[in-house]
Design a protein around this nucleic acid. Sequence first.
DNA 1: GATGAATGAGCCTTCATTCAT
DNA 2: AATGAATGAAGGCTCATTCAT
Lengths: 220, 220, 220, 220
Amino acid sequence: MPEAAVATSPSEATEQRILDSAELLFARRGLRGTRVREIALAAGVSAGTLYIYFPSKTALYQAVLDRGLRPVAEILDEIGCGRPTAELGTLIEGLLRHLAAHPWLSRLIYMEAISEGPFLAHLARIWFRPLLERMGQLVKGGGRRHNWPDDELPMLTASIVQVVFGHFALAPLLREAQGRDPLSPEVLREQTRFLIDYFDRLFPDHHPRQDAKEKDHERT
Amino acid sequence: MPEAAVATSPSEATEQRILDSAELLFARRGLRGTRVREIALAAGVSAGTLYIYFPSKTALYQAVLDRGLRPVAEILDEIGCGRPTAELGTLIEGLLRHLAAHPWLSRLIYMEAISEGPFLAHLARIWFRPLLERMGQLVKGGGRRHNWPDDELPMLTASIVQVVFGHFALAPLLREAQGRDPLSPEVLREQTRFLIDYFDRLFPDHHPRQDAKEKDHERT
Amino acid sequence: MPEAAVATSPSEATEQRILDSAELLFARRGLRGTRVREIALAAGVSAGTLYIYFPSKTALYQAVLDRGLRPVAEILDEIGCGRPTAELGTLIEGLLRHLAAHPWLSRLIYMEAISEGPFLAHLARIWFRPLLERMGQLVKGGGRRHNWPDDELPMLTASIVQVVFGHFALAPLLREAQGRDPLSPEVLREQTRFLIDYFDRLFPDHHPRQDAKEKDHERT
Amino acid sequence: MPEAAVATSPSEATEQRILDSAELLFARRGLRGTRVREIALAAGVSAGTLYIYFPSKTALYQAVLDRGLRPVAEILDEIGCGRPTAELGTLIEGLLRHLAAHPWLSRLIYMEAISEGPFLAHLARIWFRPLLERMGQLVKGGGRRHNWPDDELPMLTASIVQVVFGHFALAPLLREAQGRDPLSPEVLREQTRFLIDYFDRLFPDHHPRQDAKEKDHERT
DNA sequence: GATGAATGAGCCTTCATTCAT
DNA sequence: AATGAATGAAGGCTCATTCAT
């Protein structure tokens, strides 16, 4: 419960500020491309101060990655304790809400994945594999009657991850190409609605939430 | 097989080797994270030699990006001159074939997009926007009777790009998480088959190829 | 004695040390021929430290030039506020004293002039042109009855500058050829005495200081 | 007599072109500040070709220096074989003619002198010392009755060198400050006339040429 | 706890020099 | 004789990291 309590100490606040700035910059430039001084400057401290909190740039990177991924893992754990029906929609919505609240997270993850850096295995273990597994369970299990062949399910779940996370990861490009901010509340609402529709079509038998379904489309 | 034919001067070969090595490394580390010496070493030349062919690291990066994106633009142009029906499948297959032959391209593009680098606008202009437009035409036009609302089409096409390119961009992560090489011919064949199935479900009226359709699913 | 008074921060001292070393080396090798590492080594710091104080080698060069030329401009300004008679001698003596105290200055100026570098115009504006003008005023004005034709005066003043500054600029060569140090107090005293004699002959009506005149020559 | 005969071989011409370009550039940038490629480019050959004619940049520098200084030494030798009277004027005129024909020579010499390079001793031995000695002989000897004290003669001769060579060495600065080209025939003529007048005043007993004397001043 | 000063390793780039053609 | 291609050794400059204050 670190986020529930108020700022414990001034140094705790400084540490968070450093982590925030680092997240933002690592997400854009990667580990090698980000300068310690940039992070410190963005956090409003000197580069020397940063080394009081983190022993090295790499350790800071790891801390940023951990802090970002932990809540994702928690979301995955929370889902799945409930009823198996309609959980995929819940999972997606939970993820979207979290990603919208932490717009750098997707880019950070993608950056690390593409970089094939030293934390790739870690990333696969604590983020991607659990995500695929949970999604696989939700798709396979739950009495759903979708008609996807079993051997295509891994690719299906991977594609869902791509669509959900990709929207945030490629946000700069989408903004540039579409002329609107993919992270604005309005666009995020549209994107959420679209994804629900999207999953309805991929899993025709799967009706995540009655209200959401009736709101936007009456066909079928 | 365009590289077999010419084989002009020895310096031409060197230039291509440098471009190849640079593509590989830029795709993994981005512009800032890649060292010129690494590129030169990978190309089997000295760092000084590299500067005979390219005036700067940035210029080399640009050349790599251009060389990678030009064929994609050509693929987009070629499609669309034919019949409008079933063209989406053709486009996807063409793209997949090209991306499979140039496995670093997607990662290069994603890296640049995520980095929000100086070529983002260029990337949007010559890659992403044409891609979205062409796909939008193919989806909208062609007498198809899919029932997507118009305002969701941009997000739909974006999601298709995510699924097609994401497979290659996140290849290292997929390999690590799924325990198999996403770039192996076998997996690529599966991925192609999956994507065709996938589009059939997103556009139920759209029957790209009879054989592909009958192979795996008999519903509708 | 301006450097004895202040002695502010340690970094101020470092900056001055860098400027001193740079002046010495730039005066000998010019801008292009001097290595940043040499300057840093001579100043007792690392090359990186130098860049804390100056953004580039060129900026350091400019700073050295400015620091060296400012006092010369001040000397020129101070002279001329007094009586017009006998001022040329005062100017020369003031210049000689300053040049003797800053033995690298002449070489720095000559080096820049010969190099035809980017600061040549600056040098002409803040050093050479004022020098010529002030000397021209002193020679022309002041009721002197020398009989130089007007159109030879610019060349005359230029030649004076050559003789005054050239002694310091060509010091290495003079030392090598004459076997004595042109910067030693003794030789400097001789040179001053010679210059006074020299000007007496160029301007027979011009008796700068009675004492100086009587000290060394009773002939005529 | 290397300049009398026509171009012996094509390679001879190339060598001279390289020497010419090198002279020009060494005079402006010094040994360290000049790039071999620049010289080659200015000579219209490749850098590799340059190494056919000269084993290294330093050797080329030495050759340039030698080629430039040899005629000066010859001028010094030729003078002095004649009558001792009025020879100083002849020497000055000969020097001026040569320096005007080789405008880079003075700058080259000054550059080397200021740089305190490895050829300083050489320069002193074959250029400056003979020059001082010859001038000293001409001033002292020849039955002239000027009234300079003996211990000021070295400084006097040095000052003459400064005035004669300095005009060419500081040409860029003079051009910038005076707004006219010090190497133009017109200005060179003026400078020659000025120098004759100048020496007449430094050595009142010394009447180099009747015509020159009567042109501008009738005192004595 | 915080920082300004300092640094050594390393980065991008240039350069004198070599050599096969 | 001439050169284009190549390179190893700097050269200017940056950066992660340390430490006295």
